[in-house]
Write a protein that binds this DNA or RNA. Structure first.
Lengths: 298, 298
DNA sequence: AGATTTGCATAATAAAAACTTATTTAAGGT
DNA sequence: ACCTTAAATAAGTTTTTATTATGCAAATCT
């Protein structure tokens, strides 16, 4: 048997009032409840804690006043744990572990968390980039609480909040003959080669676009790197289809590209904030989620 | 409602094994017992602590790993309290609060506690001198655990262990004409004046000596100070009756006195170690009490 | 000194909490 | 799809804790 915090609370009250009955009244319990608790402490520690003066309350033995000191500290520690945990989850401070789909990260995250930090400067972010599979895992395992990701194959254990719908665009070298057109049809691309952004789920999404219009692309290169896709296109390896358009048309290697909307009514991709369905969010994450819903602009 | 240490212990085990069932087996309780405890913690803190992966155990949320840290510390603190209290009362170290009748203190205490400290160097003493009334109160209130005192009017709530019987002696100036005798009768003192050691209970004791032999002393001075009695006698103010005889015949003021046994069969005083009947002694005090019984020589 | 009051202990009982077994439900693996 | 793993839930039991009523020792009052 071990002692309990409640027993110590009872003992402290008795020590404070020097009187079991008075202590019991202050604690709103019966007098024998206190007597019992203290007997248990005495038995447990193998020490006499109180001297009972029949008509004049009780006083502490040496061991009793030792325990008084120790118990006071322990109970304060317990209080600290309580407030620490409660505050830490209820307060608008601490870290938010944020997942982010690789291609989305640089485009939206910096601005968004900067704006958020203007309102809540004590919240900091830990960013975890990854593909949809990895992000999904991180959410389910609790490694991240929220994630920016496309709504592609996330499964029903992940809840989503849509921020924007991103329509697919054709990426072409700036000097390509089709680059001047306002919009493009799949038919226009029939004889061109393609560079495919080859990531889990993205893959299948692009395929579904082509299938929906009976189009068969001539895929020349595949890569999982969004920036490499842009550079390949910029260097004339063909066109590509993407849903994101950075603010610049210059690729890392200096080549230029353009993004032209598809004339066809192609299924857009949903950009969402995702969270695990079975995880209750701490306050800061809840607030951040609301902030994203209200303040996100694609 | 507040959290309990047991709940934290359960939580710690779950965090350690990442698995409620495994934790329950290590703790020798059923799986629902653990589940329950953790639900209670979650409800109490208003935070989700675990993410349940139905067929793959559990993992900690951010708040969960916060609590892991805090709970570990708190439980260690609780362990410390336990060992501290237990050791402190069971071990042969710490302080003994020792009461001592004023006149006895300088004569016996220093030697005794020195000898005791040779065996148990980690025990220290806090000495409380006082008259019998005060010593009795200190024992009953728990201020002192043991006391050196005469067995005079201690009452039945104090238990005693006799160390020695001290027979009364006549104190005379060294140059007094009676000072050369081997022993004295009350009749020899008939025409002398007396200095009375006037302390609670001592008073009544001396009176009973005189009454027992139909003797009426001519009391010239009364004082509660033993040393003053000796000096008064040394300066020729009369004789006195005492039970203690220091190793020196020189008084504080340089005058000389002698102590001569009473020829009459006078009731001796019991020098005892006293303790409150209703107080269980800590180990160190018990050992010291035994030590006194065995090693005290008057 | 006897009577009254104060205040802790004890006993019997009631209430609440904790735990157990059995069953259900949700994932994961094959 | 089916089997396995593991947590949640439900129902019932045990254990713990608390309550009321009473006893008893010491202090205080008359």
């Amino acid at each position: 048997m071990k002692f309990t915090l409640k027993q110590l609370r009872y003992f402290l009250a008795v020590a404070e009032y020097g009187n079991v009955t008075t202590a019991s009244e202050h604690l709103f319990v019966s007098q024998p409840a206190i007597s019992n608790a203290i007997n248990q402490l005495e038995e447990y520690f193998g020490v006499q804690l109180l001297i009972r003066h029949h008509a004049k309350g009780v006083s502490l033995t040496q061991a009793g006043s030792d325990l008084l000191t120790e118990a006071t500290q322990l109970l304060r520690h317990a209080e600290d744990v309580q407030t620490h945990i409660k505050e830490h989850s209820q307060s608008l401070s601490g870290e938010i572990n944020l997942g982010c789909f690789v291609t989305l990260a640089p485009l939206y995250i910096p601005k968004l968390i900067n704006q958020f930090n203007e309102l809540y400067p004590d919240v900091s972010f830990v960013l975890n980039e990854g593909n949809i599979e990895e992000i999904s895992q991180s959410l389910l395992s609790g490694k991240t609480e929220l994630a920016f990701v496309y709504d592609l194959g996330l499964g029903d254990r992940i809840k989503i909040h849509e921020l924007a719908q991103l329509t697919p665009k054709v990426l072409l070298p700036a000097d390509h003959e089709l680059a001047k057109k306002k919009s493009l049809k799949f038919k226009d691309l029939e004889h061109e080669t393609m560079v495919l952004l080859d990531l889990p789920h993205s893959r299948e999404y692009f395929q579904s676009l082509f299938d929906g219009h009976g189009f068969k692309p001539q895929i020349r290169h595949r890569t999982g790197s969004y920036e490499l896709v842009r550079s390949l296109v910029g260097n004339g390896y063909g066109y590509s289809i993407v849903n994101l358009s950075p603010q610049t048309n210059i690729c890392y290697d200096g080549s230029s590209i353009v993004a032209i909307p598809l004339a066809e009514n192609a299924r857009p991709l949903s950009l969402v904030v995702a969270r695990a369905a079975n995880v209750r969010l701490p306050k800061r994450s809840e607030v951040f989620l609301e902030f994203c819903k209200e303040n996100f602009h694609a």
